[in-house]
C-alpha cells in the first residue's frame, strides 16, 4: 500500500454504486435492518418507494427480501455482519440457499463489520464465523473484498448474477489496493498481489492490508514471499488458485475468523488436499475461542500473532527452517 492510496469505506463504495444504479434499474430495492450510512440517506430520500427499513428484525429482513426476489426484484439487504447471516441463518438457508437451487433469488446480503471491525465493541460484535456459516450452504456467493475498489466493482456483478450473495464488508475505511490494477475482475476470485518464492500468504478482507505490511517487512530481511488476496471465496476458481500456489512450498492462510471451523482456511486446505501438491499449509486466525480482550484492532492482532510483525516472523521461519 502506498501513502497516497485513498481511504474509503467499502459500504460507501458499494452504496454509491447502488445509488447510481437505482436511476435506471427500476427493479432494484434496498432493505435495511435499521442500519445506516450517509449515502443510504440519499437512497432513502431519492427513492422512498424502493428503500425500506424493516427495523431490527434480521429474520424478517431476509424473508421479505426473498419474497420480493421471488417476484423478480433485485434486493440488497443491509445489516451489521455479526447479526445478518447468523441471526437469520435458517431464513438464509431455506428462503435463499434452498430456493436458489430451483429459481432466481437475487438477494445481496451486505454485511458491514467483518472480522474485528467493531474491535472495542467486543465478541458480540466481532464477526468471526460468517465465512464458515455461509460456506456451509449451497449456492451462496461469498465476497470478502480487501478494498473499496473491489466493493464498488462488485455492484455490477451483483446485478448481473441472479443468485444469493453474501458480502462481508470491512467496517472501517481502508486504503485502495486495486486502484492501480483496473484489469482485476470479480470473476478472477483472487489476485497475486506479490509474486514470490517458497512461502505464499493467502489473505482475505482487512487481513490483506496486514499481509501487505508483513511481506514488506519480510522483504526487508531479504525474503520474497508471495501474497494472494482471495476475495471471491465462492464460486472459487480452484484450479487457477492451485496453479498459483503450486509455485510455493508453504502457504500461510490469514483471516480475521475462526480457523479449523470451515472458514477460508478450510477452503484453501480442501483444495490443496485434493490436488496432489506437496504444499504445507499453516493457518492464522482465532482457534476455538472468542476474543474477550479489549483494545484497538492492532492490539488484538498482536495478542493473537496476527500483526504484521508476527506474520513476517512466521514467513521467515517457514522460509528458513
Amino acid at each position: 500500500m502506498t501513502a497516497a492510496a485513498v481511504k474509503k469505506t467499502m459500504r460507501d463504495a458499494f452504496i454509491g454504486k447502488a445509488l447510481e444504479a437505482m436511476a435506471s434499474e427500476k427493479d432494484l430495492y434496498f432493505l435495511s435492518a435499521d442500519f445506516g450510512a450517509p449515502l443510504l440517506d440519499k437512497i432513502r430520500t431519492e427513492y422512498p418507494a424502493r428503500f425500506l427499513n424493516v427495523g431490527i428484525a434480521e429474520q424478517n429482513l431476509i424473508n421479505v427480501a426473498a419474497g420480493m426476489a421471488f417476484e423478480g426484484l433485485t434486493v440488497h439487504v443491509y445489516a451489521i455482519s455479526s447479526f445478518l447471516a447468523t441471526r437469520a441463518f435458517e431464513q438464509v438457508k431455506i428462503n435463499l440457499s434452498l430456493h436458489s437451487q430451483i429459481r432466481d433469488v437475487n438477494v445481496n446480503m451486505v454485511g458491514v463489520g467483518a472480522g474485528l471491525s467493531y474491535d472495542i465493541s467486543g465478541p458480540t460484535h466481532h464477526c468471526l464465523e460468517d465465512i464458515s456459516v455461509v460456506n456451509s450452504l449451497p449456492g451462496i456467493t461469498i465476497f470478502s473484498p480487501s478494498d473499496w475498489v473491489l466493493a464498488e466493482k462488485f455492484h455490477a456483478y451483483a446485478l448481473a448474477h441472479r443468485t444469493p450473495k453474501y458480502l462481508r464488508l470491512e467496517g472501517k475505511p481502508v486504503p485502495a489496493i486495486y486502484d492501480r490494477r483496473p484489469e482485476v475482475r470479480i470473476e478472477d476470485c483472487f489476485c497475486e498481489l506479490q509474486k514470490g518464492s517458497d512461502v505464499c500468504v493467502v489473505a482475505t478482507g482487512f487481513m490483506t492490508h496486514v499481509a501487505l505490511e508483513a511481506v514488506k517487512l519480510a522483504g526487508e530481511k531479504g525474503l520474497k514471499p508471495g501474497l494472494v488476496d482471495l476475495f471471491l471465496l465462492k464460486p472459487l476458481d480452484g484450479e487457477k488458485l492451485l496453479k498459483t500456489l503450486s509455485a510455493y512450498k508453504t502457504v500461510i492462510t490469514v483471516e480475521e475468523g475462526f480457523i479449523g471451523a470451515g472458514g477460508m482456511d478450510a477452503i484453501v486446505l480442501g483444495l490443496v488436499n485434493g490436488s496432489g501438491l506437496e504444499l504445507k499449509v499453516r493457518s492464522l486466525g482465532f482457534r476455538n475461542k472468542f476474543v474477550f480482550e479489549r483494545g484497538p484492532r492492532e492490539y488484538l492482532h498482536s495478542l493473537y500473532s496476527l500483526d504484521a510483525k508476527s506474520l513476517a516472523g512466521l514467513i521467515e521461519r517457514e522460509a528458513r527452517p
Binding site: N63, E90, Q91, I94, N95, H99
Partner: peptide
C-alpha cells in the same frame, strides 16, 4: 406450490415480500 415450506415461521415474511413487490408493480 409457491414456495418450499416445512420449516415453520417463514411463510408470512416471504408473503409480505411478495405482497409488497406486487403492490409496487
Amino acid at each position: 406450490f409457491e414456495t418450499i415450506n416445512g420449516s415453520l415461521g417463514h411463510g408470512l415474511g416471504v408473503g409480505c415480500g411478495m405482497a409488497l413487490a406486487l403492490k409496487r408493480r
